[in-house]
Design a protein around this nucleic acid. Structure first.
Lengths: 335, 335
DNA sequence: CTGAAAGCGCTAACAT
DNA sequence: ATGTTAGCGCTTTCAG
C-alpha cells in the first residue's frame, strides 16, 4: 500500500507538501504540486479513508438502517427502489453507504453504537419499528438522521403523502359510483394509521358511513393474508363493490382468490392497490393504484441528510412530503 | 466520544490494560479486567473501527460491487435476494457491507481504488460487466474476491447451474410432447451463453433440430422486449408450441401479448420462465420456471469470501455451484 | 500482571 | 513556499 511518505521520498519533499499538493492547497508552488500529483498518480496512490477520518472526523460514509422482522426489507420493490435511489444520489454527492445493523463480531451493538463504531456521518432510517427504543436513541443522538415515512419531532424526514393518497383513492372510487368500499389495513404503523384516518375522513366527506365489516386488519406484502381476507369479504351477504388492498403486491393474493371464486375484475368486483410498483403496470388489467414516487423519496432523503451533514449550523429540520398520483388502471368498474 | 483513555483514567490503569481487558487478553488480572469492562460498559464505550483498522489492517467490512447500466440492479428480485442474503450472512459473521462504486467526492476512483480507499477486507462481485478492465483489475488484485455467476481463472466464484437449468427445462418440455420450442435469449453475457449452449445441446440430445426462427435475441428484465418478440413468434406461419423466456419478470410482457392476441395459456401456447421468483408463484396459472436458489447463492458467496479473508493461506479457490430445480407450474400444456 | 512507547496514515497548525 | 510536529484512537511489542 503506497502512502504519502512514499511519494514524499520519491519527490524529495515533505509529507506535508504532498498532502497539500493532493488537496490543491494554496501555500505550495504550483509546479511542485503538479509534479507531486503526477508522481502520486504514477505510483497509484489511493488515500486511506480511515486515516483521514481519524484526523478529520468525517467519513463520507452514510449509514442506512433498513430492517424488518423478516429481514427481507430489500425485497419490497418500494424499499429496494428507495435504497437504490439513496445509493445513486449519495454516490454522486461523494458518499458511500454502509448498512447499519445489530450484530458485529461476537458482540451485539445497538444501532447507535454501530453507527458510532463505523463513524458514519449520518443515517437514513426506513422500514423499521420507529417505536424501538434503539431507533429512538439513534434519532435523538448527535448523529444526523433522516427518517423515511415517519416523523420525529424536530428531526428531518421524508414522507410519502399517505393522507392524500388514500383520499385520492376514495374520491376516485366515489366518482366511479362506489359506496360499498372495503379496506384492508396493513400492519399497524404510523403510515397505516394515516391511511386509515384518511380513509374514514374521506368517506365521511362523501357522506358514506363505513360498514365496519368492510374494514379488515391485513398485512403488507403478504398476498396470502390478502387472499384470505378477500374470501371473508366475498362471503358477506352484503358484499362490497370494491376492495382497497394494503399494497400492490399483497393485492395479488386478492386477485387469485377472486378468480378462484369465478369472479371477474372489474366486472364483478373492483380492486385498488397502493404503491404503484412496476408490476402494477405489467398485470392485465393494469392495477388501479396510488403511485408513490419512491425514487424521489430516496433521492430527497440522501440529499437532505448530506445537507445536514455539510451544514450542521444552517440547515434546519424539515419535513419533506413527496407527492404521488393516482394511476387509474382498469381494475375499478364505473357503476 | 468516549475512548480508551477515558476509561483508563477512570479506572486508574493504563490504556494498554483497558485494551487487554476489552479483548479478554490473558495477561491481565481477571478481576481488574472485569472491573474495566464494567466501567467501559457504564460509560457507553464503543470502539472506533477506523483507529483499529489503522493498526490491524482489518476492517471487518466487505465491499459489494453491484452495478448495471441502468443502475437498477437492486430492483431485480434475483439480485435483491442475493444482496439481502449477503447482508444477513455477513452480519452474522461479524462483517459490515459497503457498496463499491466509481465515484467519490470530486474524483473518479476505479473499483479497485475505491475498495482500497475503504479498506474493505474483500469484495463480492455480481451483476456487472465482467469484461470491464476495472473489474478484471479488481479481481486480479491483492483483494480477496468472490464473483457471482461468472468465473475467473483461479478465483473463487458462486454460480447458479445454468446448464442444468436450461437442460431441465428442455427435458421437461420434450416430456410434455413439445418439439417446436422457441427460445428468447437474454443480454449477451456468459450466463446467457451457457444457457444458449445448453438449450441447443439438450434439443440435439432429443433429436430436435432447432428452428433458427425460434431463437430470438431478447433482454433480461424487460417485459416490453419479451412482448414484442412474442408477437413476432406468434406471427410465424409455423408457430412454436412453447416459448422459453429469459426470466420470469420479462415473461410478464409475453403473457400480456399472448392475451392480447386472444390466446390462452397454456391451452393455446405454453410458456416457461427462469429464476423462479416469488411472483412466478403468485400468478395464475403458476409459472413453469427454473428456480434459482438466490438466497443460497448470496449466503455461500459471503461465507466463501469471509473464509478466504480469515484463512488466506489455507483456503483455496473454489467454484461453488448452487443447484436449482424445475418448478412445474401450470403454464406448459401436455400435448 | 501492568504500563510505556511506538506507530498505523493522515491533516493542520505552526514554524521556518 | 516548504517543513516540522503533534496528534486522531487504537493495538502491540517489550520492559518492568
Amino acid at each position: 500500500m503506497i502512502k504519502l511518505k512514499d511519494i514524499a521520498e520519491k519527490c524529495g519533499v515533505s509529507i506535508a507538501s504532498v498532502s497539500k499538493a493532493l488537496h490543491g492547497g494554496s501555500d505550495i508552488n504550483p509546479k511542485t504540486a503538479e509534479h507531486i500529483r503526477e508522481v502520486a498518480s504514477e505510483m497509484g496512490y489511493v488515500p486511506n479513508a480511515s486515516a483521514r477520518l481519524l484526523k478529520t472526523n468525517r467519513s463520507y460514509n452514510i449509514g442506512v438502517l433498513f430492517v424488518d422482522e423478516t429481514s427481507s426489507g430489500l425485497e419490497h420493490e418500494y424499499f429496494s427502489t428507495i435504497l437504490n435511489a439513496i445509493k445513486v444520489e449519495s454516490e454522486s454527492l461523494g458518499y458511500d453507504i454502509t448498512f447499519i445493523s445489530h450484530r458485529l463480531r461476537n458482540s451485539q451493538l445497538t444501532f447507535y453504537e454501530h453507527a458510532k463504531y463505523r463513524n458514519v456521518d449520518g443515517v437514513i432510517i426506513a422500514s423499521v419499528d420507529f417505536k424501538d427504543p434503539e431507533v429512538v436513541k439513534l434519532v435523538e443522538s448527535d448523529i444526523p438522521t433522516v427518517t423515511i415515512d415517519y416523523e420525529f419531532n424536530g428531526k428531518s424526514s421524508v414522507v410519502s403523502d399517505n393522507i392524500q393518497g388514500e383520499r385520492d383513492i376514495v374520491d376516485y372510487l366515489v366518482k366511479q359510483g362506489h359506496r360499498k368500499i372495503a379496506f384492508i389495513k396493513g400492519d399497524d404503523t404510523s403510515v397505516t394509521q394515516l391511511r386509515v384516518s384518511s380513509f374514514y375522513k374521506s368517506c365521511a366527506e362523501h357522506g358514506i358511513t363505513v360498514n365496519e365489516k368492510y374494514v379488515k386488519q391485513g398485512r403488507y406484502h403478504m398476498p396470502k393474508v390478502s387472499g384470505s381476507i378477500t374470501r371473508e369479504l366475498l362471503e358477506l351477504d352484503d358484499k362490497p363493490t370494491v376492495i382497497i388492498y394494503p399494497d400492490d403486491y399483497s393485492l395479488l393474493g386478492g386477485i387469485t382468490e377472486i378468480e378462484r371464486n369465478g369472479l371477474r375484475i372489474p366486472d364483478d368486483i373492483s380492486i385498488v392497490g397502493y404503491d404503484g410498483i412496476k408490476l402494477s403496470r405489467l398485470l392485465r388489467p393494469i392495477v388501479t393504484s396510488f403511485v408513490q414516487d419512491s425514487e424521489e423519496i430516496g433521492r430527497q432523503s440522501a440529499r437532505k441528510l448530506i445537507e445536514i451533514i455539510e451544514n450542521p449550523k444552517t440547515s434546519l429540520a424539515e419535513r419533506i412530503v413527496v407527492k404521488g398520483y393516482l394511476q387509474e388502471g382498469k381494475t375499478v368498474k364505473s357503476i
